[in-house]
């Protein structure tokens, strides 16, 4: 059950973690919550799109290889609906060409798996930093 936290005002920034791997889900939740972010979990692309549109997370951490709708398609749909929504592609597809491919597809940043925990936090913090803040 995702925790519902305000994305406006002074509430914690919300991060949607879309990954079909349970271990990855747990790791991300554990690390991001510890860093002070609210965490939403989606297990496939379709779920990710639904949650993103419904909950307006500040940042979406999106896996690519997911059953059903993959991460890239989910990102495309989300960006189409919410162009301002930040999406980080976090994929174990980590060939050099993959990074370019993801950026070209509209990703705001790319995080290769496995990642350093500090890097995960830093990417999310960077994208959630408000210009006004």
């Amino acid at each position: 059950m995702p925790e519902l936290m305000g994305t406006d005002g002074y509430g914690p920034s919300m991060v949607l973690v879309a990954d079909d791997n349970e271990v990855a889900q747990r790791l991300c939740r554990r690390v991001l919550e510890k860093a002070g972010f609210g965490v939403l979990i989606a297990s496939d692309g379709l779920q990710a799109v639904d949650l993103a549109l419904a909950q307006n997370p500040n940042v979406i951490l999106m896996d690519v290889a997911m059953p059903g709708m993959d991460g890239l398609e989910a990102m495309r749909q989300i960006k189409a609906a919410r162009p301002e929504m930040r999406v980080v592609i976090a994929s174990a597809h980590s060939m050099a060409s993959d990074r370019e491919r993801f950026l070209a597809a509209g990703a705001d940043d790319v995080l290769s798996k496995p990642f350093r925990l500090g890097d995960l936090v830093a990417v999310v913090q960077k994208l959630t930093a408000r210009p006004s803040a």
């Binding site: 990855a24 790791l27 554990r30 690390v31 174990a92 496995p114 990642f115 350093r116 925990l117």
Partner: peptide, 16 residues
């Protein structure tokens, strides 16, 4: 991809 997926958990939790 398979390896990295598996390593993501291994590396991440061991880092924790």
């Amino acid at each position: 991809h398979e390896f990295r997926t598996a390593l993501t958990g291994i590396q991440g939790f061991s880092e924790l």
